[in-house]
Amino acid sequence: MKALTIRQPWAGAIAYGAKRTENRSWPAPSKHLGTRVLIHAAASTYAAIGRLRVIEITGIEPDAQWPETRGAVIAVATLADCHFDQGMSCCDPWGMEGFFHWELTNVAALPEPVTAKGALGFWTPSADVMNAVTVQQTGVTW
């Protein structure tokens, strides 16, 4: 299973909110479509414009509603599809014009974040991280 690092507040909007479109400048590799991926909240601080966008779309103040988790895996999701922005309100309200829209389904927030160092692009979590995630999902270690 691969992991994808996403800056806050977007990672929180995926894990705890209704954000099901991740915007990227590059297409998702076809080999990852239909697979489960870990959603990792980046260690970097909140992007102020992102926080305002979340409030605009959801009416929710992310800092008050969602844990301020950084530097940890916070959810698991299925990367269901990827397409380039098609305009005409494609993937509203989260899809951004001029980006690839990565469609996420079956999102499940973890009860407890799993500390991990992220990376750019898809990355492979350590066995310890995978075990900690698996225990929370099924009660069984790998």
Rank of each mutant, 00 (worst) to 15 (best):
W94H: 09
N106P: 01
I74P: 03
S126V: 00
A18R: 13
G139Y: 10
M88I: 14
L104A: 01
S25R: 12
A3V: 08
G71A: 05
W26V: 02
W26K: 05
A116L: 04
D81N: 12
D92G: 14
W102S: 02
F99T: 13
G121H: 04
I74S: 06
A64N: 07
K19Q: 12
E97Q: 15
I39V: 12
P27Q: 06
K117F: 05
V135A: 11
K31Y: 11
A72L: 06
G121D: 04
Q65F: 13
T21I: 14
A11W: 02
L104I: 03
F122H: 08
N106S: 12
T134P: 00
A13I: 02
F100G: 02
C90R: 07
T78D: 09
A28Q: 01
T5H: 00
R53Y: 15
G34S: 09
I74M: 10
L33C: 05
D128C: 00
P62C: 11
R53H: 15
P113H: 10
W26E: 00
H83W: 14
R36H: 10
I60L: 12
W102D: 01
T105I: 05
A18V: 13
F100Y: 15
H32D: 08
W26Q: 02
L110E: 03
I55C: 03
A3S: 10
E112V: 15
A77E: 01
V73K: 00
G121P: 03
A80P: 04
G50T: 09
T141K: 12
A11T: 03
G12K: 03
K19F: 05
L38P: 03
T58V: 11
A116I: 02
P111F: 06
G87M: 09
G121V: 01
I49A: 15
R36A: 10
I6S: 00
P93F: 12
G50V: 09
R20E: 04
E112T: 15
N23I: 04
W26H: 05
G17W: 06
F122K: 03
W66D: 07
A28E: 03
W94Q: 06
V140E: 14
P125G: 06
P111Q: 10
E97G: 11
T5S: 13
C90M: 09
I39M: 01
V37Y: 05
G121C: 04
L38W: 04
H32A: 09
F84V: 07
K19N: 08
A18S: 15
I57W: 10
M130A: 07
L110S: 06
T134G: 11
D85A: 13
G95C: 10
